[in-house]
């Protein structure tokens, strides 16, 4: 398909003196799962609210399912489902009532079997009053409502797993894959790199309201360098010489370095020769990624702060 589910270019949005969006670009290809990655306060939720026609952009263009998010909001919303980052429900309604209500407000009616199945998978008791739900359970209500809405072409999910435990996160990932298999496009915002890596076809990384990287996951492989910590007895110079090994440092036999994922076969072979007594490989966190990719910029910002004081 040539058309994109979401196309955003040069989006600006200010709240008073806060520039929440500062020329943001984002494309979600139809039928794909697009990761939308950025640290807290970088403008993910603001972008999503513009896409839902809740906020009016100051400048820039945004297209959603071929329509204008502000002018065509009502028609577009019957073709998508949204899960907010911070779900609050009506305290006196039960979870089940909230799900039925939300599905109907999209002009659809929930397929009872589908709702039951989702409730079971997410282990959610729908007869409890919403005020007694934990954050994770409120999020599950919104997720079930979104996934149980029939005829949806686009799922807009704002940090949907922030309250879920690992087991439920796995259930969530399965649901997203199923939706993708049915041809649904997905926008998934997150501040956790690993989650996006797990699920997404494409990734857009933003910082302070600007897009800093975007592409397919393969194109962004260099961003997902793993960090290796190990304790070895032997000489590490062979390791340091390998292609794809970066920033190797040795302190008292503790060896720490970063490695490109496609260099992993050579790296593990070389490590085996060194007879490691301990070994951990961790994916980089978003913070590390930003430190590595934009460390200079950050340092400049910080020293600015120091000198201006």
């Amino acid at each position: 398909m040539t058309s994109a589910a979401i196309e955003v270019a040069g989006l600006h949005k200010s709240f008073g003196t806060t520039h929440a969006l500062d020329g943001l670009d984002l494309v979600v290809p139809a039928g794909q799962v697009a990761g939308f990655l950025g640290p807290n306060g970088s403008g993910k939720s603001t972008t999503i609210r513009v896409l839902l026609g809740l906020l009016r952009a100051d400048a820039g263009t945004a297209r959603l399912l071929g329509g204008d998010p502000w002018a065509d909001a009502v028609a577009l919303h019957s073709r998508l489902a949204y899960v907010p980052g911070d779900v609050t429900l009506w305290p006196t309604l039960t979870g089940g009532e909230a799900i039925d209500l939300l599905v109907r407000l999209s002009g659809r009616s929930a397929d009872k079997g589908r709702k039951e199945q989702l409730l079971q998978r997410f282990e959610l008791d729908p007869s409890k009053r919403a005020r007694t739900y934990s954050k994770g359970n409120r999020q599950k209500v919104a997720l079930v409502a979104a996934l149980a809405t029939p005829g949806v072409e686009l799922l807009v999910l704002d940090e949907p797993t922030s309250g879920l435990d690992p087991l439920m996160e796995a259930v969530f990932q399965r649901c997203v894959r199923e939706a993708r298999a049915e041809g649904v496009s997905v926008l998934l915002s997150s501040h956790i790199l690993a989650e996006v890596e797990e699920l997404c076809d494409t990734v857009t990384i933003i910082r302070q309201g600007k897009t800093v990287q975007s592409g397919t996951l393969a194109e962004l492989r260099h961003l997902t360098r793993a960090k290796v910590s190990t304790v070895v007895a032997g000489d590490t110079s062979a390791l340091a010489a390998l292609d794809g090994v970066h920033d190797l440092a040795v302190v008292d036999g503790h060896v720490v370095f970063h490695t490109d994922n496609d260099a992993l076969p050579q790296v593990t072979r070389a490590l085996a020769d060194l007879a490691p007594s301990s070994l951990t490989i961790t994916p980089p966190s978003l913070e590390e990624l930003f430190l590595r990719e934009y460390g200079d910029e950050l340092a400049a910002l910080e020293s600015d702060g120091v000198t201006s004081r």
């Binding site: 009506w90 039960t94 009532e97 909230a98």
Partner: peptide, 28 residues
């Protein structure tokens, strides 16, 4: 924490009557 002496009873798992913004507004 969060409990009262008057216990919370479970409610309906479905909302056949809650079809619209009107219904919600009346309910609330």
């Amino acid at each position: 924490l969060g409990a009262g002496l008057i216990a919370d009873r479970p409610g309906p798992a479905d909302a056949p009557g809650l079809r619209s913004v009107q219904a919600l507004a009346w309910r609330l």
